[in-house]
Each structure stands twice: as C-alpha cells, then as structure tokens.
Write a protein that binds this DNA or RNA. Structure first.
Lengths: 130, 130
DNA sequence: TCAACACTTTAGAATCATTCTAAACTGATA
DNA sequence: TATCAGTTTAGAATGATTCTAAAGTGTTGA
C-alpha cells in the first residue's frame, strides 16, 4: 500500500485512491493484458467501482509514464500489457487470447530503415487460428 | 474494364458499377494501402462518388475473397493492403506512413505454438519514430 | 493543522469509425 | 424482358473512447 504510493509518486503520479487500487491490481507481480472494459470488470469483482473515465485516464497515465505497453491487435479495443520488457505475442482473435513471447526472438533480413527515420520498436505478432 | 469484370466474376463478386470503379482503382498494378476514408477521398477526386457504406461493404467483400489484406496498426482506422503476398511493414504512427517490406524476413527463436493452436500468420511491424 | 490550489475523478454528453436497416436499385437468368 | 437475388444507399444505430465542466481530494506552505 505504501509501496504502491511510493511507486506512483516515483512515477510522478499523485497516489489517489483510484490509482492505488488500479496499480495494486495491475502490478501485483503477474503480467496481465487488460482492456478498459476487462479492468473495470475485474475491479468491480473486487468491489472497487471506478468510473470508466478514470480507468481510461489511468491506463493512459500509466502508459505515458512507461508503466504499460499498448497493444493494437483488434480494431475494437486496445490492450494494455503490464509486461514492459521487450517481448512479442501469440494472438488469437477468435478466442481473444493473448500470450507473451518472452523468448529472444531474432528478426533477420530487414531492409534498411527509410530515410530520416529511426526504428522505435519491432513488433512480432503470431496470429493463431483464422 | 472487361478484364475487371472478369476479375470480379472469377472471385464470385457480381461486377457492379461501384465494384468496378473500386477494383479499377485498387488493382491498377501499384500496391496501395487504403482506409475507407482515404479510398472515398481518392475516388471522389476522380469524380466517383460512392457511398461510404458501399466502400466499407466492398473493402470487406474484397477482403473476404482474399483480394486485400487487413492491417490493424492504429486504434482509429483499419488499413487494407492490396499486396496480398506474405510481407511485413514499416509503420510510422506519427506520419501515418506505411511501407511494405517484401524482403524475406526470418523470425527465429519462436517458442512452441500454444496447445491445439495453429499459426495463421506471423506479422512483423517495424514501428518508426515514437 | 489548515487554507488554498492544482491535480483528479466523474457523470453524462460528444465523437467518430464502422455497422446496421430496410427500401430502392440492378445484374443475371430464362 | 420479367423476375429475383444480390447490391447500394441514406440515415440511424453502435460502441469504444474522449471530452466537459463541476465536484472532490492530495499536497504544500505557513
């Protein structure tokens, strides 16, 4: 609890009740993939009712501060990933199913980067099913 | 024109005026990345006014028939790619900028596929800028 | 401890890409 | 050329996300 407050403060985020609850859930040591909706549902199960607006605000605040990764895999929802290490994913659209690939993946044979551009990150998505 | 009709027919798509116009634009020999909006704009420039609903319908019809690839790169629009070969992309969110990577990319070190799942496709997105 | 204020939360409205509806239209077929 | 299934379309509906602006709350300095 106090460590969560410290954690938030050290990321220049004022430790409000809501952020403490959300951070407590997200950063409990197990990696998670959430959407605004799924997060809202999980917190509600735990009797924490937080407005959707705040959930969106908080996810973005955390994202902006590098505490979450954003994953664009489907056109109808955004996933946030608590695993901020360099990694990749198995994804099944059919089953809304997402698994981290933490193994060291190597991508070989890339052509040269377009002029005046810099590579920000290389993302590998292994699509399962059809 | 008649080849476009044939092309559509051979994909079990009735060659309507609108589909002929859209296919004529999309499959003119140069690969394109379009969104419903950008396609609508391009066609309008060429004096072809086609309702957005039809543009969406047609993009999906073409997609369902394997004439287009769908690219999910941003949460606020869907891209369709006329290059249906196995390939990857450079993408700059900042500049809405998308370039095909046709070179043979190798992805090494993948862990084993989750139980009872089959790999549909491997997608590599090289994100540029930040 | 507390006043003061900047930062947050929130309900509800707004946005915007996309899909749906159901009525009018049109290619294909006999 | 009549018929009908497949298409197109305007406009409404949807749904995730963002915005607004009013009420609430950490933080700070005295």
């Amino acid at each position: 609890m106090n460590d969560i407050k410290q954690f938030l403060r050290s990321n220049s985020l004022r430790p409000t009740k809501q952020r403490i609850v959300i951070a407590g859930y997200l950063f409990d040591g197990t990696n998670k993939h959430v959407t605004a909706e799924s997060l809202s549902t999980e917190l509600a199960k735990r009797k924490h009712i937080i407005s959707l607006a705040t959930i969106y605000n908080t996810l973005h605040d955390f994202y902006e501060n590098g505490l979450l990764k954003k994953l664009i895999l489907s056109s109808d929802r955004v996933y946030f990933d608590t695993n901020t290490n360099d990694h990749h994913h198995f994804y099944s659209e059919k089953d809304q199913f997402l698994i981290d690939i933490n193994k060291n993946i190597k991508v070989n044979g890339l052509p040269k980067t377009p002029k005046n551009k810099k590579i920000n990150k290389i993302e590998v998505i292994v699509h399962l099913d059809k």
